[in-house]
């Protein structure tokens, strides 16, 4: 069964896909408050992702979530590079050298993620 994975687009990411075929695939979520690209993930690729990243899970919507931030960032970079959201994106993303780099960055993520700069209103 195919699953999905979503990449969130902030302003800078939207700029980077502007004018490419990927721009047409941008979806509004929650009344347009969020912009995302959704990719279909074939079953065998989904199983591979779950195996490579043990914390990743399929949520109730059938989306692969809780992958490392580094994985999502690299996924976006591959989308930009290939100007595509097709299955070839995962072929590129899961190449050993790229995957190794993702895992190396992801290992550090488990210890530290920089907090955003917002004020506590307590």
């Amino acid at each position: 069964m195919p699953y999905k994975i979503a990449v969130i687009l902030d302003k800078s990411r939207i700029e980077r896909i502007r004018g490419t075929p990927v721009e047409k695939e941008v979806k509004d979520l929650y009344g347009g408050y969020l912009k995302v690209i959704e990719l279909t993930v074939p079953d065998e690729i989904a199983q591979r992702i779950l195996k490579e990243f043990p914390r990743a899970r399929i949520d109730a919507r059938g989306f692969i979530e809780e992958t490392p931030v580094a994985f999502k960032r690299e996924l976006f970079e591959v989308i930009v590079k290939l100007k595509s959201t097709g299955p070839e994106v995962f072929g590129e993303l899961l190449k050993p050298d790229r995957l190794g780099k993702i895992k190396e960055t992801a290992a550090k993520e488990d210890e530290y993620l920089p907090p955003p700069n917002v004020a506590y209103c307590g």
């Binding site: 979503a6 969130i8 902030d10 979520l29 929650y30 009344g31 408050y33 969020l34 899970r57 949520d59 109730a60 919507r61 989306f63 979530e65 809780e66 992958t67 931030v69 999502k72 960032r73 993520e109 993620l113 920089p114 955003p116 917002v118």
Partner: peptide, 22 residues
Amino acid sequence: QRFSGSFIRGLIAEGIEPPPII
């Protein structure tokens, strides 16, 4: 569009403040 705690955790981890509607 269903709510997903995992999706929201992903947003937060990426440093994106989730929109007020969710």
